[in-house]
Lab assay of single mutants.
Amino acid sequence: GHYRIRINGREFEIRGISEEEIRHLEEALRNGADEKILKEIVDRLRG
């Protein structure tokens, strides 16, 4: 998958993330885990 997200007015492209991972992120966001989720995304993109 290849997705664009906007955070604090800046747009980011996220590549190589699966539909299942996105559902997991959405679930966590609904549970209020904003900073933790951003850290997970950044860590994943770093490799």
Rank of each mutant, 00 (worst) to 15 (best):
R46N: 15
E21H: 05
E26M: 08
I7C: 05
I14Y: 02
I17N: 02
I37F: 12
E21C: 11
V42N: 02
G32R: 03
G16V: 10
R23Q: 14
H2V: 12
E26N: 07
K39Q: 15
R6C: 07
E13A: 03
E40N: 06
F12K: 00
E35K: 05
E40F: 08
G9C: 06
I22D: 01
E13Q: 04
K39S: 09
R6L: 14
Y3N: 02
N31G: 13
I37R: 07
R44E: 09
I41E: 02
D43H: 08
H24Y: 12
R15L: 11
G32M: 05
H24M: 13
N8D: 07
N8K: 03
V42D: 02
G16N: 14
D34S: 14
E19Y: 11
H2R: 08
E11F: 09
L45S: 02
G16L: 09
E21Y: 03
E20V: 08
N31H: 07
E21Q: 11
I17L: 08
I41S: 02
E35V: 10
G32I: 04
R46V: 15
R4D: 02
I17Q: 02
L45P: 02
L45M: 07
R23L: 13
E35R: 04
V42A: 03
R15W: 13
R15Y: 15
I22F: 13
E20D: 06
A33V: 15
I22Q: 06
N31D: 12
G9A: 01
R4C: 15
E13L: 04
R6E: 15
L25F: 07
L45E: 02
R15C: 09
I17K: 03
F12I: 11
I17T: 03
I37P: 01
R46W: 14
I14T: 01
G9F: 01
Y3L: 05
N8P: 00
F12P: 00
E21T: 04
H24D: 13
E11T: 10
V42I: 15
R30F: 12
R6V: 15
G32V: 06
L45I: 14
R23C: 04
E21N: 11
I22H: 03
D34Q: 04
G32D: 04
L38C: 03
A28I: 09
L38W: 07
I41P: 00
E20P: 07
E26F: 05
E26L: 09
R23H: 11
L38G: 01
I17E: 02
R6K: 14
R23A: 14
